[in-house]
Design a protein around this nucleic acid. Structure first.
Lengths: 273, 273
DNA sequence: AATCGGCATGTGGCATGTCACATGTCAACG
DNA sequence: CGTTGACATGTGACATGCCACATGCCGATT
């Protein structure tokens, strides 16, 4: 064997076991549900791999194989293969002819692209959501915001991210374009992959939470434009944060053009009709 | 057997055979390539199913199963399953717990959503592309435009669609956001599925081709805003065309709000900073 | 010594067997 | 006659066997 795998014993198995203590591995849940329910083995593998990437067990650039993963997770190759195919389609990993698959490194350019897209989609979606906003929506979003603040105070990043996601999802689903919500969800997952240069991020959790406040305020006041601008500011700031982090991690050169892409994602020179 | 399948003998096999005369079915190509090359059996099945939906062999609302399709195409269930999973993720079909999968009907709401998204993405992408445009790009796009016109004159709709796709892809790839280009490609595929209430569409092929002219003109002149507006007009018109067609096909009620979504997809009330 | 060709190994893709479950049918019962 | 229960069937999800191919090592040849 030419390349050392670097996690033959630090194991995805143990990792997943920690998360689901009542079952020794993925396999034992196989008989619980088979057909549907939204938790197929494939999806569990997807989530396990995502988590493994976040935690650093699967490192960008390294070569892995479906056989290995299947053995580590104690499932057959089929669901692992399907999971990796979906991750490949999402741009998280890339298959190489007959060598295996590789976790892709998030270079600054990709991060810029993702946030450029999120700006193009979420800002107008916010504008639309304001027009259709209800009191229940505002209440639910305040709840998520409170959750974010609590998580930020406790430096509980996973919980923070859950509330952050729920916050954005509420707004997106209120915008009444399911496809848009799904696409933004995928974009979010794509950036979730880069795992937490923890110190820097935790220090700013409270700041990020604070950025959500004006969004809810404007939403509650029915001011579409203010909400859209608040969302734009929030996304821009988050994007720049991740971009700096990516550059610091040595993901590539700091191309100022990437930053420009985030800041001005196709702003028209004049007002649209 | 309770439900009649309505195409047990009108067969996908014959259809695919007609398209690839040198091989009796998909299976015979299996030995040509195995690992890669971009033409796996799964992808061939995807394309075959897409074509079958366009041609009306697979009808929305009808129930089908992986077993059937595999038999008809003379391949195993695995690639068919993977193909349907990807189509399900793209929103073309939907799996139902233990009954099979169903080709989804494109109701007006979905079409509106797709074109709302395309407007949000392609208009700014056009703006960006102008800034990065080269003479080669302009030349290539003029070539595709000529191809569209020729196809429109000959009422060759498949060829028209190929050139149309190439035209938009050129512009999107010039915009330098690969992810955006990929997303728009998926959105396009999602609408390609509804197959051609042929008379109406063919009559307007020349009109649609003509709409691309001002885009190239503005691009060549370096006028980003004019190009963006031309693209907006083109997409709006196309969306309304497909929307009317969907309503005429009885896909649902003609909700005027859908039209509004296409026309004003989040236009800001005031100019952005 | 440098180069080239065969070979062992590992890979993903496809075929097929197996399983639990959901659905729809139909007969027995109230 | 309406309701309910078991049963047969078909389904997708998963496990496993098999294959052609790509890679990389290693020895034979020049």
């Amino acid at each position: 064997m030419s390349h050392v795998n670097a996690w033959d014993e630090c194991g995805l198995i143990r990792h997943f076991t920690d998360r689901v203590p009542e079952s020794r591995n993925l396999r034992e849940r196989a008989s619980v549900r088979t057909v549907g329910g939204g938790s197929s083995l494939t999806e569990q593998v997807i989530e396990a791999v995502r988590e493994a990437i976040r935690s650093g067990e699967l490192r960008p650039g390294e070569l892995y194989s479906v056989y290995q993963l299947a053995t580590q997770l104690n499932v057959s190759r089929t669901p692992v293969r399907e999971a990796m195919l979906r991750l490949a389609e999402a741009g998280i990993v890339r298959f190489e002819r007959s060598r295996g698959f590789r976790v892709l490194r998030r270079d600054p350019r990709e991060i810029a692209e993702v946030f450029q897209l999120r700006l193009l989609l979420e800002v107008p979606a916010t504008r639309l959501a304001v027009r259709r906003a209800s009191q229940e929506l505002v209440g639910a979003m305040r709840g998520e915001l409170a959750g974010m603040r609590a998580a930020a105070a406790g430096l509980d990043e996973p919980r923070f991210l859950r509330h952050d996601r729920a916050f954005h999802d509420l707004l997106l689903n209120a915008g009444a374009n399911r496809r848009l919500a799904a696409i933004v969800g995928n974009l979010r997952d794509a950036t979730m992959t880069l795992g937490a240069s923890t110190v820097e991020r935790r220090r700013s959790l409270a700041d990020v939470a604070a950025e959500h406040e004006p969004i809810v305020t404007a939403l509650s006041a029915g001011d579409a434009e203010a909400a859209a601008q608040a969302m734009r500011l929030h996304l821009t700031h988050t994007g720049e944060l991740l971009l700096r982090q990516s550059v610091a991690d040595g993901g590539g050169t700091a191309d100022p053009e990437d930053l420009a892409l985030i800041r001005f994602p196709g702003t028209p020179g004049a007002t649209s009709p």
